[in-house]
Design a protein around this nucleic acid. Sequence first.
DNA 1: TACCATACATACGTGCATGTATGTACTAAT
DNA 2: ATTAGTACATACATGCACGTATGTATGGTA
Lengths: 213, 213
Amino acid sequence: MSSASAQRLSVHSRPTQTERRARSRSALLESAARGLSRYGYGNLVLEEVAREAGYTRGALYHQFKDKEDLALAVIEWVNENWMREVGEPAAQRTDPVAELLALARGHAVFCRRDIARVVMALRLEFAGQDHPVGRETERIWETGIKRCARLINAGRKAGSIPPGPPARAVALALLGALEGAVIALAGHTPHDELLAACAVAGVLGIDSHAEPL
Amino acid sequence: MSSASAQRLSVHSRPTQTERRARSRSALLESAARGLSRYGYGNLVLEEVAREAGYTRGALYHQFKDKEDLALAVIEWVNENWMREVGEPAAQRTDPVAELLALARGHAVFCRRDIARVVMALRLEFAGQDHPVGRETERIWETGIKRCARLINAGRKAGSIPPGPPARAVALALLGALEGAVIALAGHTPHDELLAACAVAGVLGIDSHAEPL
DNA sequence: TACCATACATACGTGCATGTATGTACTAAT
DNA sequence: ATTAGTACATACATGCACGTATGTATGGTA
């Protein structure tokens, strides 16, 4: 593991073990993400996940402790990608309203892949339960809510967002409407971005035609 | 069954058979609706449904052919209630925008009961499958989409809704955002109505402060 | 009262998906 | 080349939930 040959990126000698492991893990994660997005946790059947990735359940149970562990890994994986592709770019904006709208558009684009509904589906499935998977999705959701609520408060202080219901309630409506709209618009590639932004703007009570890009 | 005693509404003699049947059917339907809303179809366990209604699975299988039949009955039941409490009242409005906003507010109020997520949950669970339950939810959803699309077209002709993406895409975003927002706002009773209307108004591209009530 | 039908409960059989245990090919180091 | 360890496949065991079959009590009718 610490030898030179184990660390080399085989360009193309035969694949090394860690490389092989990483490849199959990626394939399994992606397949599981699609599956979770389509069927949810309970209806997800691991044999199908493995088959779609080109393996059998043996590979799955070699890389992941159990179904729950797999789901948690998928959630973490999706969340990391979301942060990189949506969360962090949006954070560049200085204006709270601009950041919120950037989040909306970015999320719409992000969800054009079939990974879209992973979080929404799991959150719905485990709402009110005390399952580890449910707790994790809830944690991620709560992080988003807090971020939006902060931005809403900031925007209200700056005067760019009119007063209204408590920031947390607005944040809940904002993210809920965003997810719902994006899921309903799956496949309507040109319009999803604009309509997601419009929905968010509406919840915020601002004029959606004000912000370009 | 056709005798006088079978048709009398027992006020309070002992309950008649048809009455008894109707009572237990109602209890089972309501319990199943809550269950479907919480857990979805696959995760719904019939023994729990029966127990929460005060019966056993025997009663369930006496009234419904199987799990699928039960789910379809729940969907029909929820849809009828929705039509009566939300759909028809909103249809009284003459202005398309007013009707759309009435739908939003009405749906928010309707979903304060825990039946809220039945349609959304089932639609997500069976999206892209060819299950009878999925087809039925899809049919109801499509009905809503068509209704909204017609209203959007009417509103655009009347000038009360600005031009934008195709009416169907806007309708998808509208209903998606509405469902998402309402679900996310579950329990936030005073604000759900207003925020649902705001989300819808935003998708339509209109000023949400224009319409009172 | 005697009899039948209906509303339900209990008991049983079955399938499917998960998790585990075992077996096999491939890699890597001595 | 031999041997150890890793990546996977195959085979087996368990459990849970569905559906069905049977039993029991209550309502309806003659």
